[in-house]
Design a protein around this nucleic acid. Structure first.
Lengths: 190, 190
DNA sequence: TACTACATGTAAACGGTTACATGATTGC
DNA sequence: GCAATCATGTAACCGTTTACATGTAGTA
């Protein structure tokens, strides 16, 4: 299976909770994962075509409720396997724009709780090393006695990075705690 | 003047503190704004060509210290004007990947303190309204009594957004305080 | 009547990265 | 001799957005 771009997985994820048209997929993405992941029609329709070619989804023309040519897409068994495989793989990119970790996490109930905890652990580690670098730069800035305005502005951008790191490390901790509890509660109910 | 992409301003910003070669620009960007703004050679060299055509920078071939064909670029008066104009304009995009606010702020000492404070104020407002939306969704999620794992994962992604918003609102407050102090201290010394 | 939502799709443009080609200089 | 760094540049590729084209259905 050739390398696929991430749009594929956002669409497979959405279809994993039921068949939908291209239009529906767009709307569903906006309402659910829209705050960290966007897809345009120019991305969705060609991707749907590709997914059919790969056998990961199927299409059915829902003929004439009225005269709308509505095409409904469903995920196949292979498609579900592809999705689950991707969900379990470690996160690659974490550009804060299109956040792959959040995309995996949003569909986290499809896989084991521990796998999601692992994703969070790895993210937390990255955040710690990023913060470590920032702290190094900060010490460097502080060691320069001469406090010119230039340095003030530089350190503001630095503090931005530190603030995000610290907040997200906390978020990781809280999230992992939540997932530990989820794991325990599902154990009991079995 | 036709609309320019943001790479232009990162380069003008870097050149505003002294002439540099394309290679130097790349290295300087990495060391200074690299944590929120990247540029590749494939972006830098064509942009330098464009900036020369627009008269915003000039080029001088620094011939033969050895035999390296080093080309040194300097910002022109018009280039400086273009940069200062852009620095004073309100921020457009704030994708957290390539952060335009931080780019403006990093070069903030070139303009009035108050203009930078305004950028921060506007950013803070955006963050408040984003947080407001998240809080609305959260209430909605909480009102669903049925606590299925699905919702747990959804709310994790939501909390991610909330955590960043809160941290950055605090960062805005701190930054504005710092800039108020900077403004007062420069007033006194005049 | 006009506006909004439903519905599908494509082509061009845009912004950016990656891979490649080329070659000098410095230091181990 | 070899690796790292200095140094310039281009072409292909990738992912994404925008603008466009087309048309139906419901409702105010």
């Amino acid at each position: 299976m050739k390398r696929m771009n991430k749009s594929v997985y956002s669409i497979l994820g959405i279809l994993s909770s039921g068949p939908k048209s291209g239009y529906d997929i767009k709307k569903t993405i906006e309402r659910s994962i829209g705050h960290f992941w966007a897809e345009s029609y120019g991305q969705i329709y060609p991707t749907l075509k590709l997914l059919i070619d790969e056998g990961l989804i199927t299409m059915e023309e829902e003929d004439h409720i009225g005269k709308l040519d509505r095409k409904v897409y469903s995920i196949t068994y292979q498609g579900m396997e592809e999705l689950l495989g991707w969900l379990s793989e470690p996160v690659e990119d974490i550009t804060l724009g299109r956040n792959e970790l959040l995309l995996k996490l949003f569909f986290g109930d499809r896989i084991q709780v521990d796998e999601n905890i692992n994703h969070l652990k790895q993210y937390e580690e990255r955040l710690y090393s990023e913060l470590y670098i920032y702290n190094g730069i900060e010490e460097n800035l502080n060691s320069i006695a001469d406090k010119c305005p230039r340095l003030v502005y530089q350190s503001l951008t630095l503090k931005h990075g530190q603030a995000i790191c610290k907040a997200l490390i906390e978020w990781c901790e809280d999230s992992m705690k939540t997932l530990y509890e989820l794991r325990e509660s599902t154990k009991k109910s079995q």
